[in-house]
């Protein structure tokens, strides 16, 4: 049976304001006005065609995968992104190729005699651990866990749910709880993904205390010019 339950939802007193009954009519008007905001806003004609063009342009396939959507960037930005990706790939290849067949050198401090500096972050692994009920082969689902292995000296692992919930903060000098453990010279962590949300995983080298929000974490990374690796996980 189809029934609109919204009318039955209890409206908390606090939602109507600071509890002043004299204000109730004002808040009721406010709520009514909120329902009418944006009334004249409509997408540009042909927007569906542009979506299909983005999809059909090879930007994406129905095969699900975690991470941010990059496909729909504006055209002018796509060119810049493509060039950036190509340059980054070339740089990564140059960095990776010399040592892939050689015995693994220790992370370079940049002072080794003639050795190619190796980004310590290449050792970082952020991988899914499937939950008991595996819904699919890839992507992230509620019940999965994310395994973060950062066997790098000075590494810290921070995991946020949404923008403002710090779920976990591990570093070699502060192993809090069973979710954190030592790994090599660094640290490893395992976090269960309990609810549908965007989770943000940050591995930073040489960071201080974990910021309490993801925004602050981004600011701290930028402020300290810290080496880091980030990954966003869309969990459904």
């Amino acid at each position: 049976m189809s029934q609109d339950h919204r009318g039955d939802e209890q409206v908390p007193t606090g939602e109507l304001g600071p509890g002043d009954p004299d204000r109730a009519p004002a808040y009721e008007r406010l709520r009514q006005a909120l329902r009418e905001t944006g009334a004249g806003l409509a997408p540009r004609p042909g927007w569906e065609d542009r979506v299909w063009a983005a999809i059909d342009g090879g930007a994406t396939t129905p095969r699900p995968g975690p991470g941010r959507v990059r496909e729909a960037a504006p055209r002018w930005r796509r060119g810049v992104i493509a060039a950036g990706v190509a340059l980054a790939a070339a740089a990564a290849l140059l960095l990776w190729h010399p040592w892939r067949h050689a015995p693994a050198p220790p992370p370079s401090t940049g002072t080794g005699g003639g050795t190619t500096p190796v980004d310590p972050l290449v050792a970082v692994r952020i991988e899914p651990v499937r939950g008991e009920v595996q819904m699919r082969a890839d992507g992230w689902a509620v019940g999965d866990s994310v395994s973060v292995d950062a066997p790098v000296a000075g590494a810290s692992v921070w995991v946020y749910r949404g923008e403002d919930r710090l779920l976990l903060a591990c570093s070699a000098r502060a192993l809090h709880g069973p979710a954190c453990r030592p790994s090599g010279a660094g640290v490893a962590a395992l976090v269960r993904l309990d609810v549908p949300a965007t989770y943000h995983v940050v591995v930073a080298i040489g960071a201080g205390e974990a910021p309490t929000t993801y925004d602050e974490a981004l600011a701290a990374l930028a402020r300290g010019d810290l080496r880091h690796q980030r990954r966003d996980l869309e969990v459904y």
């Binding site: 999809i55 396939t61 129905p62 699900p64 959507v69 819904m135 699919r136 992507g139 689902a141 459904y236």
Partner: peptide, 8 residues
């Protein structure tokens, strides 16, 4: 479009 197939 990318993720709908895994809508639970």
């Amino acid at each position: 479009f990318r993720d709908l197939a895994r809508f639970e």
